[in-house]
Design a protein around this nucleic acid. Structure first.
Length: 214
DNA sequence: GAGGAGATCGTCT
DNA sequence: GACGATCTCCTCT
């Protein structure tokens, strides 16, 4: 995969309401530079979190040490640790002082697949298991973080709009496909808000495939 | 294929 | 002290 094809999405793209940005993020490429290798995947599933107006958002009760990045400028990584063992990655939206973020829930791997499998401690070489393992690489917010070796200590607050970062989101001209939306996964507050967006029919999407128009 | 339980610890009350 | 924007493994159908 060539670097010149992986130009970052500009910061102004993220300086809008997360529920507007979220569906437009589908089809873009999340890129990790790992040593001399590029690990990349097409974003096929996201969830919008609306900040202080959203009971399900980490920002609902105001700024803390953990969620500080959400209140900063748009286009930065908000990475948090959850369930005692997993990391999840968001990109911040809206300007300084206004919280908003989009959780990246699933990728379709496109480059550095062997490195991702190593990071996940999965074996892609067994032919009978290949499809199952490939689908398990990045279909889930914690899985994709493990595959791209995204952690809070290394990546929280990282600029996702710069090639100087070793983690960024690149634009892609190809059409993502048909977009569907549904309630968000795994939350108890505002559990019926339709803020999960995904590429309909894509096999790398995690969780329930409920059909609903965006 | 679906559903349930356990793992495990940072964060906030 | 309770809970969580999850994942994996196991059991049951």
């Amino acid at each position: 995969m060539r670097l010149r094809k992986l130009q970052p999405v500009p910061r102004r793209f993220y300086d809008r309401d997360p529920k507007v940005v979220a569906p437009q993020l589908l089809g873009k490429i999340l890129v990790r530079r790992q040593g001399r290798k590029l690990l990349a995947g097409r974003i096929v599933e996201v969830e919008a979190y609306l900040g202080e107006d959203d009971p399900a958002s980490h920002a609902f009760r105001g700024a803390t040490d953990r969620n500080r990045v959400m209140f900063g400028p748009p286009g930065f990584a908000y990475v948090y640790f959850t369930y005692g063992m997993h990391y999840c990655a968001n990109v911040t939206c809206l300007g300084e002082g206004t919280a908003g973020a989009i959780l990246i829930r699933a990728l379709e791997p496109s480059a550095g697949i062997e490195e991702m499998a190593l990071n996940r401690d999965l074996n892609l070489s067994l032919e009978t298991e290949h499809v199952r393992v490939l689908r398990a690489l990045t279909s889930g917010p914690a899985r994709l973080c493990e595959a791209l070796d995204i952690t809070r200590t290394r990546d929280d607050g990282k600029d996702l709009t710069s090639l100087k970062s070793d983690l960024w989101i690149a634009s892609d001209r190809s059409h993502p496909g048909e977009i569907a939306c549904s309630p968000r996964v795994g939350i108890t507050q505002a559990a019926d808000w339709p803020l999960r967006f995904y590429v309909f029919g894509n096999p790398f999407v995690s969780g329930p495939k409920v059909r609903r128009s965006p």
